[in-house]
């Protein structure tokens, strides 16, 4: 019993840390990106990450239903990661199509002079007094990695809550609780970023990731303890379907 509770707590903490990391990896442009004057997708961290995580939860819950009892934790978590990666990939790809063919701009980074992946120079393509445009290759890769991390984290929380070897909540309870924990972590991370970020190559990433992960650790531990208290009551287990 104690091992199960500890395992659930540890998985919630790992899931929370991964979702916080995911938000730091997203190419988030916010309102300036809607006018193509900042690098990234034209929305806030929370909206982007919640969309990706919910897609991940859908794929994870579909894959989890393949097992009658005791779903394989790693496989379900990986399927959630794939769902989130696809969602992020489509969002960034379509965003880029609109930026390039609709607005007529060249995707380029505003925060680094040379793209760390393609080694292409960026500064010539940046319009003066803007903060980059579109989703350049480094940000795209970073966004896919963020999708992997966030989807894996969210689905990991979901699968330990739904699996009959661990918490054994009903499907809907596990889903909504996983989303609640994910959102709490994602928003604390979004406040840490404070506006826009381009991805792992952004100087902001290196400067702020440690604070973000520390805060996420504390929030995840508290969320985990609250969920373990809910598990200890035993009333949610068994999941009346």
């Amino acid at each position: 019993m104690i091992e199960t509770l500890l395992l659930v707590l540890v998985c919630i903490i790992i899931g929370g840390l991964l979702s916080s990391l995911a938000v730091h990896l997203m190419p988030v442009g916010g309102a300036p990106a809607a006018m193509a004057t900042a690098t990234g997708i034209a929305t806030g961290c929370v909206m982007l990450m919640t969309g990706a995580a919910v897609t991940g939860l859908f794929t994870a819950s579909t894959v989890a239903s393949f097992w009658v009892t005791k779903p394989n934790v790693i496989l379900v978590a990986l399927s959630g990661a794939v769902g989130s990666m696809l969602m992020m990939g489509f969002t960034m790809f379509v965003g880029n199509l609109i930026y390039i063919f609709g607005a007529g701009i060249v995707p380029c980074s505003g925060r680094v002079a040379v793209d760390p992946i393609t080694k292409e120079s960026q500064t010539e393509y940046k319009t003066p007094r803007t903060d980059g445009h579109g989703v350049p290759p480094a940000s795209f890769v970073s966004g896919i990695l963020g999708g992997f991390s966030g989807g894996f984290g969210g689905a990991l929380i979901y699968v330990v809550l739904v699996s009959d070897s661990y918490a054994h909540f009903s499907v809907a309870t596990a889903g909504i609780v996983a989303m609640g924990i994910f959102i709490a972590n994602a928003i604390i991370a979004a406040y840490n970023i404070g506006g826009t970020i381009e991805g792992f190559h952004d100087p902001k990433f290196k400067a702020r990731i440690r604070t973000g992960l520390t805060c996420s650790l504390i929030v995840s531990v508290l969320c985990g303890v609250i969920i373990v208290i809910a598990m200890l009551t035993g009333t949610l287990a068994g999941g009346v379907m």
């Binding site: 961290c45 609780v177 709490a184 406040y191 506006g195």
Partner: peptide, 25 residues
Amino acid sequence: GTGVPSIGVLAMGFGIIGGITGIAV
């Protein structure tokens, strides 16, 4: 820095966790 909706959604993310725990207790 992330828009007003983020804090409302945060409140309800907290609310769901607390509500389910409260109902369980």
